[in-house]
Design a protein around this nucleic acid. Structure first.
Lengths: 215, 215
DNA sequence: AGACTCGCGTTACCGCAGGTAACATCTTAG
DNA sequence: CTAAGATGTTACCTGCGGTAACGCGAGTCT
């Protein structure tokens, strides 16, 4: 009945859990975001119900996997953000870190980016709009927002402003990165510089083109 | 055999197509992005195979639906972008237009945003990373990039820069909007202002907070 | 008129995915 | 030796995307 002497079994369960997650990782890396539970179970050398015992449902496995990668990526990003350098340099390093990560393992990040679909037939209608849209993006946005708020002096509304900017910048990074991955229109460094330029207000500062639209 | 006298049937087919799309629209509006083909067919008062005859597969219906909304939204955005006003005002109007749209019909835009999942079992493995990720986002990004390039004088690399910025800004808008829809941390106007501030370089211009991190 | 095609629509089915119930087994405690 | 409980299995259910095969009414050709 007591909960104190379960260390042994918990250890074992945790180890299995990690093994399963690593297997899932391999499958996702190979098959992309559409990896099926069957495939993951097979890769782990077991069968489906075990996966479900460990993770509840596919969303659970998704969440666990997402947390692993999100943690890892966030650590890298934090390191870039905390580097002792000029702000511009830190921002560029952060952007580059993110892009390097998605460039190295695109399948994984494609898997992480979109929602779990959900849609239980018998259950609720699910009006929680965008509630659990993309965990990685959300966490990155929050994190970046926190960092911005910690580091910068933004006046009275700093909290709100920082969070908005956090999510906004992450979204910019993500969308531009996704597009860049598909089309490869330039080098990573160029992309980084261009995005930093955008954040540095070059859009606002640029001159109008001569001969405007029609008039 | 000839292809000239098919106007009548084409009219009819087009009308049915439109009806089906409107039905699909209603269902997506009600059931969210997980709307099933069966549900859509039922809503339209017909059965599945007809949908497949008209749209090929779910991706086809998805594409058709996406095009409708994307066209409509892009028209609104172009209008905001083309308004005879200061650049800052136009940017704010554009952001606000987008946010108003997703606020008005969140389900629809949630449906539009994420990929079709794909994953044909017998066919290719699908290594086209992010190729067809989110049509709406991509089109908006391209469109905005074009507009930026047309309007602004950005020096030698204007084409590349404009496209990057287009996709980046759209991503920012999307991510911040998605987060805002879920949490509603502030009014729409505040969000718009904050994002415009970001684009106007306030991040770069802000002062460091007194007493930095640990040192 | 009668046969022929052809667009529109149906029922019934396949394969596969997520998810579960029920059974088998191996270890460990008393 | 027996009882409990984790570990793993097979076999199954549901629902979805997608398809094949058939039914039917309207125009067309001879």
């Amino acid at each position: 009945m007591d909960t104190t002497q379960s260390t042994d079994q918990e250890r074992s369960a945790d180890r299995r859990r990690r093994e399963l997650l690593e297997a899932a990782d391999r499958v996702v890396l190979r098959d992309g975001p559409g990896a099926s539970m069957n495939a993951i179970a097979a890769e782990a050398g077991i069968t489906k119900p075990i996966l479900y015992r460990h993770f509840g449902d596919k969303g659970g496995l998704y969440a666990a996997l997402a947390q692993r990668h999100t943690d890892a990526l966030l650590d890298s990003l934090r390191a870039a953000l905390d580097a002792p350098a000029e702000r511009r340099e830190r921002v560029e390093a952060t952007l580059d870190t993110y892009l390097a990560a998605i460039e190295a393992r695109p399948q994984v990040y494609r898997f992480l980016m979109h929602p779990a679909e959900g849609g239980q037939p018998g259950g609720d209608q699910g009006f929680d709009v965008g509630k659990l849209s993309a965990p990685l993006l959300r966490r990155m946005g929050e994190e970046l927002g926190t960092v911005i708020e910690e580091r910068l002096d933004l006046g009275p509304d700093s909290r709100r402003l920082a969070r908005i900017w956090g999510h906004g910048i992450v979204g910019m990074m993500h969308a531009a990165g996704d597009w860049w991955l598909g089309e490869r229109p330039c080098t990573r460094a160029e992309l980084v510089r261009s995005m930093a330029d955008l954040l540095w207000g070059r859009l606002a500062a640029a001159g109008d083109r001569v001969g405007g639209p029609g008039f």
